[in-house]
Amino acid sequence: MHELSLIANLFEIMEEKAAEKNARKITHVVLQVGKLSGVVPELLITAFDMYKKDTIASEGKLEIKEVPLKILCRDCKTEVVKDDFVFICAKCGSSNLKTLSGMELYLEKMELEVD
């Protein structure tokens, strides 16, 4: 359950950005969570709802966008979305691959209430 540490980091970023914009409230938060990010989206939401009390996002809602694991074979140039974690090109058998997405743990955007 390292999701709570990640949510603590999220709030640090959120509060800093909200202060820059002189926001009164944060009403909506969108996270990008990669398939291989090693976190459980439901636990992130639970942790967010626990953490938000008495913060600028106390009425805020967390939305999670799951990002698929996408790899590119450097040899045959095939791009594949993987449901398993087998890092071998299904087309040519090469293991010379590049991960294009799936590791993300990003705060994508927020909706703020400003004066």
Binding site: L6, R24, L112, V114
Partner: peptide
């Protein structure tokens, strides 16, 4: 009062990294 959408794109693990 109005609502405003802000793009951020920041890594939650950025400070650890």
């Amino acid at each position: 009062m109005k609502t405003k959408e802000v793009m951020v794109l920041e890594d939650l693990l950025g400070s650890n990294k």
